[in-house]
């Protein structure tokens, strides 16, 4: 792997790590498999790109993107809690709907941001080398968000959210409205995913309605790889494990894409196959390790 592709993988790891943290909140904390993310990632990108091309400050555009993601998550959560639609199906319905919504927001399938001022520009202005600006910017933002999530999960409301995913009957009997907690959690999760999408769009210089395909798989891979490698005994450990898991996942992908056996090499279209194998390996690793040590 070249230094260039290494830095590129770290950069992607951190920016998509924000999305992975969102997936962690729904998948692990709330036990709510949420596929909305495939739609809310391009939603964040679209809102941010449209805002920036209309002259809005790029940081403010992140706020708008997170608001849009929050609303998208709220739709899924309300479909599930109030209208009693199965969580998986509710999230698929929102995801599909968002495809049309995103095209409406952009006014087409994609929107270029070339030449526009972005969040990364404000980091490169500080004097760091251009190719380090994006990974450093994303690392700083991702770590700040991770700390914020860790703090939240230690608050009274955060504890109620952890309990809602683990034992809804118990937490209801202790006076918590689980519908409210699910709506709050899924909305916040999608707000994070939208911010991640907005930053990706600002970094690659374009928003595209198809950029969300496979988001949930990458998010789950990051969560599972991170937890397997770095552990999840405490909330603090688990949250940083998810963020670093995302970096590890992007590095593994970059590594795989760099492999060459004679005439054979992987192409980007093999990414989904590689991801699946990676997740299966991470899921079965503890079991295999146990078997080997038993021998």
């Amino acid at each position: 792997m070249t230094l260039y592709s290494f830095i590129g993988a770290v950069e992607q790891g951190f920016v998509y790590g924000i999305m992975a943290l969102g997936v962690y909140i729904t998948f692990r904390v709330l036990d709510f498999p949420d596929l909305t993310v495939d739609g809310s990632l391009p939603l964040g990108a679209s809102v941010s790109a449209v805002a920036i091309t209309h002259g809005v400050n790029p940081y403010l555009s992140l706020l708008l993107a997170s608001g849009a993601g929050f609303l998208a998550g709220m739709v899924t959560a309300i479909l599930n809690t109030k209208l009693k639609i199965l969580h998986l199906l509710a999230s698929i319905l929102t995801m599909i709907a968002l495809y049309s919504v995103n095209i409406r927001i952009i006014g087409g399938p994609n929107l270029s941001l070339l030449g526009a001022e972005t969040v990364i520009d404000s980091f490169s202005k500080t004097g760091v080398a251009a190719y380090y600006a994006a990974p450093i910017a994303f690392a700083v933002i991702a770590v700040l968000i991770t700390v914020l999530i860790i703090w939240f999960l230690h608050t009274e409301l955060g504890l109620a959210m952890l309990a809602t995913g683990n034992n809804p009957k118990m937490i209801t009997s202790l006076g918590v409205n689980t519908h409210f907690i699910i709506i709050l959690g899924v909305s916040c999760s999608n707000a994070l995913v939208a911010v991640s999408g907005a930053l990706v769009a600002q970094n690659q210089g374009a928003a595209d309605v198809n950029m969300g395909v496979g988001t949930i798989v990458a998010g789950l891979a990051s969560v599972i790889v991170g937890e397997t490698v770095f552990g999840n005994r405490t909330i603090l450990q688990a949250c940083f494990a998810v963020l670093l898991g995302s970096v590890l996942y992007r590095l593994a992908i970059a590594l795989a894409l760099g492999i060459e056996w004679g005439a054979f090499s992987f192409t980007p279209s093999d990414l989904n196959l590689i991801t699946s194998i990676l997740v299966i390996t991470a899921l079965t690793a503890p079991m295999i390790k146990e078997k080997i040590t038993a021998i």
Partner: peptide, 18 residues
């Protein structure tokens, strides 16, 4: 953590440390 959750039964849960 379980006891902290129970200690808040029927009360407002906010953003102070659990």
């Amino acid at each position: 953590q379980n006891m902290a959750i129970a200690a808040k039964r029927g009360k407002h849960r906010g953003l102070s440390i659990g």
